[in-house]
Design a protein around this nucleic acid. Structure first.
Length: 439
RNA sequence: GGAGGUGUGGCCGAGUGGUUUAAGGCAGCAGUCUUGAAAACUGCCGUAGGGGUGACUCUACCGUGAGUUCGAAUCUCACCGCCUCCGCCA
């Protein structure tokens, strides 16, 4: 959420910056609501002041034993007028709030301008792309070839965009998550957290998924409840689309002591996305699933430190790929390609031989105070005043897509897959996945 | 699911209808004293928003939301959280 003061004082510049993100700010509606708000708020508060003063007089008069019927008559219909005015004010405030909640973050000055992903800037590459002297397969053929990846079973159990892993591949998936967690905790100084996978509306509003992106989420309510709207949790629960939501919301409505900063959290969780609107995209394989695992990194920092923290964050994510010896590149997303809450985003893309291209495996963003303002997440500054924090999040990494990259980059001519050195301790020393009993 | 208790500022805690502007304490900040520190003393000390060029001024907020009332931290109702016990459960 943007600072409404900023919109009141510098609307032209803000509108322009938002246009660079392909967002059209409703200038006229905003101005009109503001005008009305000012009028009605003043009116309401005048009525309240009058009521307060009169009530006090009544109290004083009564304590002196005087007759108060005159004063009472005077304010006979004040209550109704005040009530109506308060309702009007409430409506306008929530209309303004509604606008604010759907406005994306402002891009940082260093973000390249552009309308689409074609304007993203590559900033570095790492690793050598391996040349294969045999005909390569994609991860689906490899996984099915060794009998460890079963999409048919997953369709039976759930439907499309789900998968079933078996045997060594299931274990490799677990090994990857463990390896990532261990690296971030032991080498990068993160605090490991275990979070709820079902969260409430407020949490999703705090990080920016709601109210605008409801269709991307899965909603759940208790079984047997025929009228979820009338249940205790009126809005039901939402399955988390990323651990960013529960982790970042740890500081919602909190005032964190400055000494505690920076807070660096890591969690391994499943993520659930409806993938509405992506019909037909990445329908084959593990790339785009309704359920996938991810190791997520979150930094909660002092505003002066957030861009240093962003570099640290992306470095932490890159380290995982380097240890796995997977080639990748880092790009800066342009203004038109950034997510709703981000002021600046780096994506890491890993090399996928079967697609002969780099594919997103991590996204690291500085949200500055955008989420903190929605969450009222603050710290106490040098002067003892509460001030909004800055929040950052990044994947470190998407486990499923990392698995895809390993299958494809480490495939052998005989259909087996070599296991990266750093994962072998997590695999009881196993150094390759191959078909049971086969060579 | 059943029974009982409970929710007040950064923290503890008083407050059962009217000068409450929420007592008092702790923590914090400034000062006096001191070589320095501690102690003692004095003062300051919540958040958000509105109006005004400004000194200033007004409003809201006592878990959340409705209600009663001229007036609600206080009374009523619903919901949420926490605590204790019982039942169930991994």
């Amino acid at each position: 959420m943007l600072d409404i003061q900023l919109l009141r004082t510098d609307l032209d510049r803000i509108t322009q910056q938002l246009a660079a993100r392909n967002f059209q700010f409703p200038v006229e509606r905003f101005n009109q609501l503001e005008l009305e708000r000012k009028k009605i708020q003043t009116h309401t508060e005048e009525l309240q002041a009058k009521r307060n003063a009169t009530s006090k007089q009544i109290g004083i008069a009564k304590s002196k034993g005087e007759d108060v019927s005159g004063i009472l008559a005077e304010v006979a219909n004040l209550g109704d007028e005040l009530k109506q005015s308060a309702i009007n004010l409430e409506q306008i405030q929530s209309a303004l709030q509604g606008i604010l909640l759907e406005v994306p973050n402002l891009p940082h000055d260093s973000v390249p301008e552009g309308a689409s992903e074609e304007n993203n800037q590559e900033i570095r590459r790492w690793g050598e792309i391996q040349a294969f002297d045999f005909e390569i397969k994609d991860h689906v053929s490899i996984g099915e070839g060794i009998g460890m990846l079963d999409f048919e079973a997953a369709v039976k159990l759930s439907g499309s965009r789900f998968t079933l892993m078996k045997n060594g591949l299931a274990r490799l998936h677990r090994a990857l998550a463990q390896f990532m967690l261990d690296t971030h905790v032991q080498e990068n100084g993160y605090i490991e957290v275990y979070t709820p996978y079902l969260v409430n509306r407020n949490s999703l509003q705090g990080t920016g998924q709601l109210p605008k992106f409801e269709e991307d989420l899965f909603v759940v309510h208790a079984g047997g409840n025929k009228n979820p709207e009338e249940s205790e949790h009126q809005d039901g629960f939402y399955l988390i689309p990323t651990a960013e939501v529960p982790i970042t919301n740890i500081v919602r409505e909190e005032i964190v002591p400055m000494k505690a900063l920076p807070l660096k959290f890591v969690a391994h969780t499943p993520c659930f996305r409806s993938e509405a609107g992506s019909y037909g995209r990445d329908t084959r394989g593990l790339i785009r699933q309704h359920q996938f695992d991810k190791v997520e990194l979150v930094h909660i920092v002092h505003p002066d430190e957030s861009y240093t923290a962003l570099e640290e964050l992306i470095g932490n994510a890159e380290k995982i790929l380097q240890k796995l010896k997977l080639p990748y590149r880092v790009i800066t997303l342009c203004t038109g390609d950034m997510g709703f809450s981000a002021a600046k985003t780096y994506d890491i893309e890993v090399w996928l031989p079967s697609q002969n291209t780099y594919r997103e495996i991590s996204s690291c963003s500085n949200c500055e105070a955008f989420q903190a303002r929605r969450m009222q997440a603050r710290f106490r500054n040098e002067k003892g005043k509460p001030e909004l924090l800055h929040t950052l999040n990044g994947s470190g990494l998407a486990v499923g897509r990392t698995l895809v990259a390993i299958l494809e980059n480490f495939q052998n001519a005989d259909g087996s897959v070599s296991i990266p050195d750093v994962l072998q301790p997590y695999m009881n020393g196993l150094d390759r996945l191959q078909i049971a009993g086969g060579k």
